[in-house]
Design a protein around this nucleic acid. Structure first.
Lengths: 206, 206, 206, 206
DNA sequence: AATGAATGAGATTTCATTCAT
DNA sequence: AATGAATGAAATCTCATTCAT
């Protein structure tokens, strides 16, 4: 009524809706959010939501997709893949945490929701697996003289877990980006070192 | 039919109900679980659930409490607090992962549910904070010559995050307890080492 | 509110609900009837309908079943199967039309609804087929000197169609039971007679 | 995409729309058909449907009218009203069944839909009454020595009912046009014969 | 101690229909 | 002449929760 009952091109409305949906989902969680609430936030009628996104689940999926894309694009954009593993990791970690820091509300919360929403846990799990693989390869590439039985995959699991935990801290403002990054990077390389052949100094001298 | 209206002492009924609730919550998640389903699983009537636990939320809370208590008791019982930090950590990690491994279904899933259920995220967060503090103290106690600016708390956050991730792997059977424990322990001490003053050997000489 | 908010045993409530449902479905048709309307008519809340019958479709099915059973039982009860085909048919036709006459509102309308309700057309069609078979056998049993190529099945189709049409007339009060019965019976046997007595030629010479 | 915004003369558009509507209504039934579906099938926009036909109900009415007109015209066109009643009936029945046979999908289904759609039952009933009257007159004209109390109207009801039932069989392909016609014609005249030739007594004496 | 019976409140979803261009 | 954008209104169904016995 009071709001703008304007005709908007499809693309614009889509974003408007997603903005509203991300906002409300983030605050209330998937289950506690009603389509009514999203429609109200977007200042449109419920049927529009269904016309554009089909169902609540699909709408949530679209939110996830958009936010994930933004995240990935942002981080990718800041990484130079021709760097050495060390530089690469540093850049990636920084880009990652900076994004989290700059988008506190939306990303982490949505991510947490998805993690435990039965219908999306699968999606999230797959995404995480891919990151774990990536981290695993990075580890392998960046480790000299690895112990013969080093389980890079498991190591990657642990590091990604640590990263998520730290990111959560950053997202709540309980940790600064730079300190967090430093710690992650240290953990990454140190956790990995061959057991005694500490060649860190020269390497990190680099 | 025949097995219906038995009078049971309160304590027994309570456990019966919690067993059923944990079972169903674990399988279906908090939101997807109906009180009907729990009552059916427990082979009692819904009013009993409400009589004993007041509401769905409280029932879930009770599940969480019981499972958490069991978990903590089990782990505590296996730790000798008079050991050196190194031994302590090793024992704690092993006890932790063994518990996860032995109680795959219930604990992790319940934990995940709680993490994202708005009403319980808080509870979980608090529990985690306490563990983080604990781990932080352990780190401090076990680290000699720490760098002056070492952020033990943040380090603990990372390690607990890593621990959760690995535990998740164990809980799905994708990782063995012993390998996982080894990795966690290594990560723990190595990630921590003062930057050059590697005094591990003597310490671990135990 | 004003009505009786009493606790009733399951069986009683079931009938109460079916009564209401049959009433409303008959008046408004399947699609034009809302569960709200039925609940209001039955003076109960909507969830009760769903608790007892699961869905609107199933509720309609239950109506159909109950009315059909009553109908079949009533008609069967009035037929003596040891009679000659002629007597049998007479009794059956009378019983059939009398039932229709005595239960005008409910049965016919429900039947019509079902006929065209996509989800129930199938059921009705099957029921009709069984009646057609029955009628076909009756025809065969009651016909002497049938023409060799007599298609009893098709004849039965026609007769059942005629019967339904006449029944519809009876159900609206536009036809008396006895006259209608007489006509159906005549149609039945005469329509069937062997060709011998054919006085057709002169007529069509006209 | 490309095939979109053509300007078509009113008459063409109207037929295009009716074609689509008949098609969809026939397949899905009145209630299960959405205006969206019809618009899509007709490859036009919904507002056009409303511009031309005002409402879903009116659109369905228009479908019914057109199909009915075609049906009546076709059948009328094949009948020579100067024939004897016998010939007339034969021609009419054949024309009728042939039309049904040639237009299986559309006509019968639409007709059935209308029969039970509350809003159109009335229309159908009226149409049927007119046919019944016609058939009644035909009977009267074709019957010599009628019994004094012959209820031609009721007889016509029965015969039309039988006709509809047989037509339904033809429309599903479960009966051939010629056999069906033969049967209907026989039923028509034989079912009607004056009582005189009654060989019933001995039979029922059994 | 225990339960069958009952419901208020709200969720998702669909549809016929119209406005503004 | 034609349509993309938009919605009011309602329908089906579910669930946590409580009464009366």
């Amino acid at each position: 009524m009071a709001g703008g009952t304007k005709r908007l091109p499809r693309a614009v409305r889509e974003q408007q809706m997603l903005d509203a949906a991300v906002q409300i989902f983030s605050v209330n969680g998937y289950h506690e959010t009603s389509m009514d609430a999203i429609a109200a936030e977007a200042q449109i009628s419920k049927p529009m939501l269904y016309l554009y996104y089909g169902s609540k689940e699909e709408l949530f999926g679209a939110c996830l997709d958009r936010e994930l894309s933004r995240f990935v694009e942002d981080v990718r954009g800041k990484i130079d893949f021709s760097q050495s593993p060390r530089e690469l990791l540093r850049n990636a970690v920084l880009a990652f945490l900076e994004y989290i820091d700059a988008n506190r509300a939306s990303w982490m919360v949505l991510y947490n929701q998805a993690t435990s929403s039965q219908a999306f846990a699968h999606t999230v799990r797959e995404g995480r697996e891919r990151i774990i693989e990536l981290v695993g390869r990075l580890l392998q590439a960046g480790t000299r003289n690895p112990e013969p039985d080093t389980d890079f995959d498991m190591m990657a699991v642990a590091l990604v877990g640590a990263g998520e935990a730290i990111a959560a801290r950053v997202s709540t403002g309980d940790a600064g980006v730079n300190e967090a990054a430093e710690l992650m990077i240290n953990l990454f390389w140190r956790g990995l070192k061959g057991k005694q052949s500490d060649k860190d100094a020269p390497v990190s001298a680099r």
